[in-house]
């Protein structure tokens, strides 16, 4: 691994910007992730900023089971993100369908639609769990494993 590559990786791990996208969640996971941005949990100390556009984001945080309506938009958003990109499935229903398992309008899980790098379980996820997921992912990015 060259020096430049090492440096790039290090920098990347210092500023993982996230984009939050709701693909049919019940909002509980979304507000818990929003709570991470606020003073008590403060993910900004890891360099995490929530962004409004997929073109600015490194990590796509998905909450909710993927509904049929939103699937194409999700794929479009995923494609708009610059490489390298990472996806975090936040919440049981993004991971495995959760309580919506068997609903006629949802896909069984997020990874049947786009590739996923980290799963956070919990219904809703706890802010602590999200912090841990992000720090584990960042560690992996730094080591070049993700």
């Amino acid at each position: 691994m060259g020096l430049v590559e090492k440096l790039v990786r290090k920098c990347r791990a210092r500023s993982p910007w996230i984009l939050l996208f709701d693909t049919g969640a019940c909002n509980a996971c979304d507000i818990e992730i929003a709570a991470c941005l606020t003073p008590r949990y403060d993910v900004e100390r890891f360099g995490v900023l929530a962004k409004g556009s997929p073109r600015h984001a490194d990590i796509l945080v998905i909450t909710g089971p993927v509904t049929r309506q939103v699937r194409d938009r999700l794929i479009r958003i995923y494609e708009q993100m610059p490489e390298p990109k990472y996806v975090v499935a936040a919440g049981t229903c993004a991971t495995s369908g959760g309580v919506y398992w068997g609903c006629y309008n949802t896909y069984p899980s997020l990874d049947s639609v786009i590739p996923v790098h980290a799963y956070v379980s919990g219904c809703p996820v706890k802010p602590e769990a999200i912090l841990r997921a992000i720090s584990v992912l960042v560690e992996k990015i730094e080591k070049g494993e993700a």
Binding site: C26, G102, C103, Y104
Partner: peptide
């Protein structure tokens, strides 16, 4: 965009399970 079909799902679940689904209409 986030139509999930909860009303239909409620018809397929016993009352006690519906309770946990209903909570997740809006978190």
């Amino acid at each position: 965009y986030i139509h999930r079909g909860i009303e239909k799902a409620l018809e397929l679940r016993p009352y006690i399970q519906g309770l946990y689904l209903v909570e997740r209409i809006c978190g």
